[in-house]
């Protein structure tokens, strides 16, 4: 943006003031409350006696259970983000040019988003049933009867990589939405750009590679952030598929069980760590992205 006066940008700031106020109160006010509580000794339903500095945090990082939940979250997040981004982008690419019956595909790809995990959790509990062979149910049974028995696996019951399987229902649910984001992005690209590329003699592939894809990077960023923030807070899915148990515990579930034990300080400390992790990953990216946009 070149230098412009307040008369120019003033109205912009003005219309955003209501949003700024509610975000300040309901997001940052509550983040402030969370940070504040995380520094106290409020480990019961009683009010805090005083501040304990970073003790709650150091305790957490010496807590095997917490480290285990972070590991689970890491696996879940990577598989979930890669899965939804790849599938969503692929679907959008396949549907992008539009054809008869496209609407049916699009609606069905989107449909899983309509189903809340409270209900579809039951189905996924079945589908990801770990029993194999004669006892098999769900997907293992399907593999078995399709003579794809070697594909049978214990899904999320595997103590090492099970969390990767936990991402499957999440990928199922959100790939369609990522597709919608990319489709909106594709459709937002003016037809002239494509025409111009064609006139210049670019092949179809070159046109996508050099004209279309670069235009999609802001949309890809939206998708990444939306999927990422879902992953960080992944809670409903895990509660529905496995319930709160050690094997599949992620920080959000740990936070919930801690809250039930009225250990507010520890629960808030977990929340703060989640936020810090996000900050470390997202903020540099946002800043570099903002800079790149300015250069353009």
């Amino acid at each position: 943006m070149r230098h412009i006066g307040i008369r120019k940008w003033g109205p912009g700031l003005l219309v955003m003031i209501p949003s700024i106020v509610v975000i300040a109160v309901f997001v940052y006010g509550l983040i402030g409350w969370t940070v504040n509580t995380s520094l106290t000794d409020r480990t019961t339903a009683l009010p805090a006696d005083g501040y304990v500095g970073l003790e709650n945090f150091t305790n957490l990082f010496q807590d095997d259970r917490f480290i285990h939940s972070l590991k689970n979250l890491g696996i879940l997040t990577v598989v979930f983000i890669v899965g939804t981004m790849v599938l969503g982008f692929l679907w959008a690419l396949l549907l992008e040019r539009g054809f008869k019956g496209e609407g049916i595909f699009r609606s069905i790809y989107l449909f899983p988003m309509a189903v809340s995990f409270i209900a579809s959790g039951v189905v996924w509990r079945w589908l990801l049933n770990s029993a194999q062979g004669d006892e098999a149910g769900g997907l293992n049974k399907l593999f078995d009867s399709l003579h794809l028995g070697f594909l049978q696996n214990p899904w999320w019951n595997d103590p090492d990589w099970g969390m990767a399987a936990m991402a499957i229902p999440a990928i199922w649910q959100l790939s369609g939405y990522v597709m919608a984001l990319f489709l909106a992005g594709f459709r937002g690209i003016p037809g002239e750009l494509r025409e111009a590329a064609r006139v210049d003699g670019a092949s179809e592939f070159q046109m996508y590679r050099h004209v279309i894809f670069p235009q999609l990077s802001p949309v890809a960023l939206s998708a990444l952030i939306i999927v990422g923030h879902m992953s960080m807070k992944m809670f409903d899915l895990i509660m529905a598929v496995s319930g709160a148990q050690y094997l599949t515990e992620v920080p959000a579930v740990y936070l919930w069980t801690t809250l039930l034990g009225s250990n507010y300080a520890k629960a808030c400390a977990i929340a703060v760590i989640l936020l810090v992790v996000v900050a470390i990953v997202v903020v540099p990216y946002l800043i570099s992205n903002a800079r790149a946009e300015k250069r353009r």
């Binding site: 940052y28 969370t34 807070k233 936070l255 977990i270 936020l275 997202v282």
Partner: peptide, 10 residues
């Protein structure tokens, strides 16, 4: 950044 606030905590 505000989007990432874990609602369970608040």
């Amino acid at each position: 950044f505000g989007m990432f606030i874990p609602y369970q905590a608040v």
